[in-house]
């Protein structure tokens, strides 16, 4: 009897372990197949948690003052609303508006100009940028190796206390891949558990007429690159993707952002020049014949793309354990 019970518990544990990946990440039914290969690189809870610690820990920056979350706050759908441009060490201001981080598994390239080709190497850019974290990988690894907290967390995640740059980068990527926004009202309507109001329906019609080519549902972006007619900022002189590709055809092309979570992710555009959606629509009046009613209806529809469940998901928020690790402060 006792042996049978033990066997039963073991089977249950194996079953739960097999089901674990579903709890970390799941494919929303109405989403396309992700670009990231989860079969090849499955998410693991210990790595995701380590990535979460690292994402929120300013230890990654030169003076231990700036974390990934400094510019990618969970309450802003992992964007940044205090400044038009990113804010780095020594109160430096960067060159671009920090983009919102969600649904990264569906993206083939990263940054406004697509400079980064894989999510696992994305965090190298902000860590080493002199106006962002201003650090180098070797020094980050030295700091992490001196931390008993991280020795333990890396051991749990990777089975050793080596703490290599590949482990560091993979862990951050694993956490970022869990940032899936698929629980807005729009998603509930698609799944048949909610309905649009009359104004939202009208807004959807406006959206379908003018916006969906570059911002198709359900991701609300092609994640391709486009010139939406913005005049270059005279101070920044940002030329967009051509800086990376050196191809004239890529001049002033920037990555099309998703229209999900716009309420949380202001300011808008690659240089954060618009603080309000009304200003964005005013810009698009130059391209499309939008009436006042069109704009009101469209704004109503865009509200249905705000994913409060995602923004306030406790699994993505600040892990208080790193306070204890860095400052000896207990919860």
């Amino acid at each position: 009897m006792k042996r049978g019970l033990t066997l039963g518990v073991l089977i249950l544990m194996v079953f739960l372990a097999a089901k674990l990946p579903d709890k970390i990440w799941h494919q929303p039914q109405h989403f396309p197949k992700p670009a990231f290969n989860f079969k090849e690189r499955p998410l693991e809870m210990a790595k995701v948690q380590l990535g979460r610690y690292l994402f929120y820990d300013p230890i990654l920056s030169k003076d231990n003052s700036i974390s990934c979350a400094s510019c990618h706050s969970p309450y802003n759908a992992f964007a940044h609303t205090d400044h038009t441009l990113s804010h780095g060490i020594n109160d430096q201001i960067g060159n671009r508006n920090a983009p919102a981080l969600f649904n990264l598994a569906w993206q083939k390239s990263f940054m406004w100009d697509g400079a980064i080709n894989h999510i696992e190497v994305q965090s190298l850019a902000p860590i080493t940028h002199p106006k962002e974290m201003g650090e180098n990988l070797a020094d980050v690894l030295t700091k992490l190796r001196q931390s008993s907290f991280y020795k333990s967390a890396f051991k749990q995640a990777f089975g050793d206390t080596l703490i290599s740059s590949a482990q560091l980068l993979k862990a951050i990527a694993q956490f970022e891949l869990t940032l899936v926004s698929a629980n807005a009202k729009f998603d509930q309507v698609i799944q048949g558990t909610d309905t649009f109001s009359l104004q939202e329906q009208k807004g959807l019609a406006v959206f379908n007429q003018y916006c969906k080519t570059c911002h198709p549902a359900p991701l609300f972006s092609t994640y391709e690159f486009a010139n939406n007619g913005l005049a270059p900022d005279s101070l920044l002189q940002d030329v967009g993707k051509v800086r990376i590709s050196q191809l004239a055809a890529d001049s002033f092309l920037f990555k099309v952002p998703s229209l999900r979570n716009l309420t949380y992710t202001y300011p808008y555009m690659h240089d954060g020049r618009f603080k309000k959606l009304g200003e964005v629509l005013k810009h698009y009046e130059k391209l499309f014949p939008l009436t006042s009613n069109n704009k009101s209806d469209l704004l109503a529809f865009l509200q249905t793309l705000n994913d409060k469940v995602f923004v306030f998901d406790p699994r993505h928020q600040f892990p208080k354990i790193i306070l204890e690790a860095n400052e000896g402060i207990k919860d």
Binding site: R41, A115, I116, N117, H118, I119, E120, V121, L124, A125, I127, T128, H129, N136, L137, A138, L141, S164, S165, A166, L169, K170, A173, I244
Partner: peptide, 24 residues
């Protein structure tokens, strides 16, 4: 190889032979 994410050994990006402002 360059589009294969974070690599280790001789291809460790901390060895000073990886551009960080763009991949490669």
């Amino acid at each position: 190889t360059t589009v294969s994410g974070a690599l280790s050994g001789a291809l460790d990006p901390s060895l000073g032979m990886y551009w960080t402002w763009q991949s490669g």
